[in-house]
Structures are given as structure tokens and as C-alpha cells.
């Protein structure tokens, strides 16, 4: 573990009775980067985040967040981090401005900084002219940006986002990620969990987690390249049932009028194309395919 990293852990472990939720996790997150933390439900993501935020004491192991030991000084960690939970913790019956002021007090933002921080929040969310709007009446995409801005009021060095874009439409997601990149540009470290693997491609490093353990780590491009054995193909034409029966096809699923498949051997693509009268083109695996493979759940058989 090194204090000059934004976040690091060594053999971080959490047990609940006999159940090992997080098992000897080693993390290294550089300052000013976006770190993606991916896993199926129950993989241990939320438990890890809760430990890193000082909300849950580790059973064993250690973690430093912004140089502070989370096991020994959890209160100090809380002042250095921002946390945006899955359900945006905003008061729907308060106005935008009332939410901002309320959370500024909760996060102990000094009075003299308040004006600047409020201005920052409003410009970030583009809500300057809607300070008196009831938060409950805002569209989900705007509410999400407000929740993010509120988590940034006290200028945290490390920002934790737990599935921030669940149920948010594609354009709002794009706007959200532009904001995240801006924060990174300003030196904030972002630690994010998501179920959308296409979003994970925004991260500098991605960690795949399964049953409390890390089962993959790297930049998205390197992970995709590492899993590219030339056996993934796009098939145009042909019949699904016939292709499914073919022993040369290990996995196949429909993509609109085409198919995505994994072949037993890349060299069999030409013969497959000839036998079924179809077009077979090699494709790179998506990060989602790489992830499912890493956790031992290949795509549809």
C-alpha cells in the first residue's frame, strides 16, 4: 500500500458469519483516474465500497483512502470522499436550492465557501434557473446530476459512485459521463460500479469481481485485446437452429437479423460460411463478453 495512491488495499477481507463477502482484495488506484468495479449482484462490490467509505469495518486487511487508514480512522475518510448511492439520496419535497443547502450543512462545508460551492453545483447541473423547483418534479437524468453535484459539495478527493446510471436514458448517461471526465481532468479520483459494460469502457482501469475476489484487471482496451482469440464472429444470413446445432459453433445469440457467435476454432470460419451459405466476419469481443468469460459465464449456448 502506498500513501501517494488515491486508494489502495491489501488483503482486504469482510466476513459475515461463514460467508466471505470480500476475500483478500488488493487494490491500487492512481490519483486522477477513473476506476471501474464490475461484478454480478452478490459479487461483493457494495460491501467493498462500504468498507472503503469507512461505513463498515473490515474483518482483516487494510485499506488507505487518500492516504488515510479506513479501519483506524473511518471518520477522517468520510471527510475526504464523496459517495453517490444507487438510490439518489435527495429530498424530493425540498427545492433544488434547499437540497444543496441541506447537504452543504451535512458535509460541514464552511460558510465562506458555501457561495462558491453552490455556484459550482448549479453550473454543473445546469439548474441555475430552477433553484426553486421541487426536486421530485425533475427528470431522472437531471436528478442524477444534482445527486452527483451534491456529493461534490465538500470537494472530495475521491468520489464513489454506486451504479449511478441505472434506469437513465442514453443521452443523459452521455452527459453524466462527460461530467465524470471533467472531474477526472480536475484531479478527482472516481471509483464507479456499473452494470453497463459499455460505460465501463470510460474507465482507465477495470476490475472484474466474482465471489469476493478479483478475477480480472486492466484498461478496457487491454482486456478486450487479451480476450481476442479471433474466435468471435458476426454471421449474416442463415438459420438460427441450424447454426446452433453445428458443433463448430460453441455459443450463438441473435443480434437483430444477424448472429453473434463464438467458434470452436477461428480457422473453421470459412468452412462454416460455405456450408451454411452465410457471411462470417471476425469481430472483437465486447467488454461485456470479456467480463462474462472472466467470471465463467460465457455468452448464450
Amino acid at each position: 500500500m502506498t500513501a501517494d495512491l488515491a486508494l489502495s488495499s491489501e488483503a482486504l477481507t469482510k466476513r459475515f458469519g461463514d460467508f466471505v463477502a470480500v476475500d483478500q482484495l488488493d487494490l491500487r488506484v492512481e490519483r486522477g483516474t477513473i476506476f471501474g468495479f464490475l461484478g454480478a449482484n452478490g459479487a461483493g462490490k457494495t460491501t467493498t465500497i462500504r468498507m472503503l467509505c469507512g461505513l463498515l469495518a473490515p474483518t482483516s486487511g487494510e485499506a488507505l483512502v487518500d492516504g488515510v487508514d479506513v479501519g483506524r480512522r473511518p471518520e477522517e475518510v468520510k471527510a475526504r470522499i464523496g459517495y453517490m448511492a444507487q438510490k439518489f439520496a435527495l429530498y424530493n419535497d425540498l427545492t433544488v436550492d434547499e437540497n444543496i443547502r441541506f447537504f452543504a450543512d451535512v458535509y460541514l462545508v464552511p460558510r465562506k465557501k458555501m457561495r462558491d460551492r453552490r455556484a459550482f453545483v448549479l453550473s454543473t447541473t445546469g439548474l441555475e434557473d430552477r433553484v426553486k423547483t421541487l426536486t421530485g418534479t425533475l427528470p431522472a437524468g437531471i436528478k442524477q446530476r444534482l445527486a452527483l453535484a451534491v456529493a461534490l459539495l465538500h470537494e472530495p478527493r475521491v468520489l464513489f459512485l454506486d451504479e449511478p446510471t441505472a434506469g437513465v436514458d442514453p443521452l443523459s448517461r452521455r452527459a453524466f459521463w462527460r461530467l465524470i471526465h471533467q472531474l477526472k481532468d480536475q484531479g478527482t479520483t472516481v471509483f464507479v460500479t456499473t452494470h453497463h459494460l459499455d460505460e465501463a469502457e470510460n474507465c482507465d482501469q477495470v476490475l472484474f469481481m466474482q465471489a469476493g475476489r478479483a478475477v480480472g484487471l486492466g484498461p478496457p482496451r487491454a482486456l478486450r485485446a487479451g480476450a481476442d482469440r479471433g474466435d468471435r464472429v458476426r454471421i449474416t444470413g442463415g438459420s438460427g437452429p441450424a447454426l446452433r446445432e453445428d458443433p463448430r459453433v460453441l455459443e450463438i445469440y441473435a443480434m437483430g437479423s444477424r448472429w453473434h457467435a463464438r467458434l470452436r476454432h477461428p480457422a473453421e470460419a470459412a468452412a462454416l460460411a460455405r456450408d451454411h451459405g452465410v457471411e462470417v466476419l471476425p469481430v472483437s469481443p465486447t467488454l461485456e463478453e470479456v467480463f462474462l468469460e472472466a467470471i465463467g459465464e460465457g455468452a448464450g449456448r
Binding site: 464490475l38 461484478g39 454480478a40 444507487q86 441505472a166 467480463f291 462474462l292 455468452a299
Partner: peptide, 12 residues
């Protein structure tokens, strides 16, 4: 919505 990648793959 809010479903993890493994369940989503099973769903499809």
C-alpha cells in the same frame, strides 16, 4: 433496469 450483466444475458 438495474439487472446485472449475468441476469441480463439469461433474460435475453
Amino acid at each position: 433496469n438495474g439487472v446485472d450483466p449475468v441476469s441480463r444475458r439469461e433474460f435475453w
